[in-house]
Design a protein around this nucleic acid. Structure first.
Lengths: 184, 184
DNA sequence: GCTAAGTCGTTGAATGCTCAATCAATATCA
DNA sequence: TGATATTGATTGAGCATTCAACGACTTAGC
C-alpha cells in the first residue's frame, strides 16, 4: 500500500530476467521430458525418490520428506499416494508419533531409481553442467545461494537504511508505458 | 542405447545443480504467489498478457503467441480460452488464413495488466534483480543465453571430436551408489 | 485440378499442483 | 486434569499443463 513510485526494470535488467525465465523453462522442460520418456516419471516425483534413497533406511517422515524436497505437505501426500500405487514407496505408521506416517522406498522403487539415474544425469549434463565453464558453474552456485538465502529471511520493507537495494542504481524512469515495464 | 559408462556428477556439480533447482523453485513460487495474490493470475498467464501487450495492435496469431511465450499451442489455447472468459482477451478469425485465430488484448485486459505490473516488478526485484550485483546479473545473462542456445540446436551424440564436454573434467568414479549420483 | 502432406488450432482425458477444510494426535498451560 | 492450541497428514475441489487425437484449412507435387 506504499505510495512509492515503481522502480521499473532497466532494459538490461528486463533482458536478464526474461532470458533467465526462458532458460529455466527450456532446461527444466528438457529434463522433465527425458525423465518422463525414460522412466515414466516427473521431475518432482524423481526428487522425492532421490530424497528417500538418501535417507537412513531409505525412509522419512512425510513432513521431513516435504521439507527435503522443498514442497508442500499436500503435494508430498498426493505424490506418495501415487508412488505407493506403483509399488515404489510403502507407507507405515510412525512408531513414536501416532499422527505420523513414514514413507519408505521399496526395493522396486530403488531399482526404478537406479535405472532412471543414468539417463537423467546425462540429461542434466546436456542441459546445464556441460554447457558451462567451471567458473560459470561457480558463479551460478553463488547466485543460487543468494536467492535461497533471501527467500529464507524475507525481510520486510525496513531492512536497514539502505535496504536490500543498496547495490543497484535506481532506474527512476518516471511512468513508462506498461508494455515496456511489465517484465514478462 | 549407447554402452558408455555414466559420467556421474561430481560433488560440486551436484551441489550446483541442486542449489540451482532450489533457487528456481523458491524464486518462481514467490513470484507466482505475488501475482496470484495481487492480480489473481498465474505467472504463465501474465506472460501471455505481456506478449500480447507488446505486439502491434496488442494482437497476435495463436501460434506466434505460443512461440513468444515459449509454450505449446495447446497451453495457449486453453489459457486464452480462460482469459477470454474474464474478458481480458478477445479472439477473432484471422483474415488472411481461415484456419487461424487472432488473440487480442482487450482494454480491460490491458488495464488489468497495468494494474498488476507494479507489484510484479517489485517482486521480481525482491526475488532476483536487487539481490545480485551488476556483475552477477551479467553472469546470469551469459549463463542463460548459453542454456537457451544449447536447447535451440540440440546437437546429437556426435558433436565434433570433443563434443560439448570438452570443458569439464571427467569424474569417472566407477559405479557409485545410485543414491549419491541420482542428482535429484 | 487433385491428391498427399503439412499446418493451425481446439478438444478431452490424464496427471500434477494448490488451496482450504478436515480429522486425529500431541503440546501447552492454567 | 481439562480446555485450547498446534502439529501431522490426508482429502477433495479447482485449476493448469501435457499428450494424443481430431477437424479444418492450406500448400506442394504431380
Amino acid at each position: 500500500m506504499s505510495t512509492s513510485e515503481t522502480r521499473w526494470l532497466t532494459a538490461g535488467e528486463q533482458q536478464a530476467w526474461r532470458e533467465f525465465i526462458t532458460a529455466c523453462q527450456t532446461m527444466f522442460s528438457a529434463v522433465d521430458a527425458q525423465l518422463q520418456q525414460g522412466a515414466g516419471i516427473s521431475h518432482g516425483y524423481y526428487e522425492i525418490l532421490v530424497r528417500l534413497s538418501e535417507a537412513p533406511g531409505r525412509a522419512l517422515r512425510m513432513s521431513q520428506l516435504a521439507e527435503a524436497s522443498t514442497s508442500s505437505k499436500s503435494r508430498v501426500s498426493h505424490a506418495v499416494a501415487r508412488l505407493e500405487e506403483r509399488g515404489w514407496i510403502r507407507r507405515t505408521d510412525c512408531p513414536t508419533d501416532r499422527r505420523g506416517q513414514v514413507a519408505q522406498l521399496t526395493d522396486e522403487g530403488f531399482a526404478a531409481l537406479a535405472a532412471a539415474a543414468p539417463g537423467h544425469v546425462a540429461q542434466v549434463r546436456r542441459s546445464l553442467i556441460d554447457l558451462l565453464t567451471p567458473e560459470q558453474l561457480g558463479q551460478l552456485r553463488e547466485i543460487s545461494l543468494t536467492i535461497i538465502a533471501a527467500a529464507d529471511q524475507p525481510r520486510g520493507p525496513a531492512a536497514g537504511i539502505l535496504g536490500c537495494n543498496a547495490l543497484t542504481e535506481t532506474s527512476s524512469q518516471g511512468s513508462r508505458e506498461p508494455e515496456r515495464a511489465a517484465t514478462s
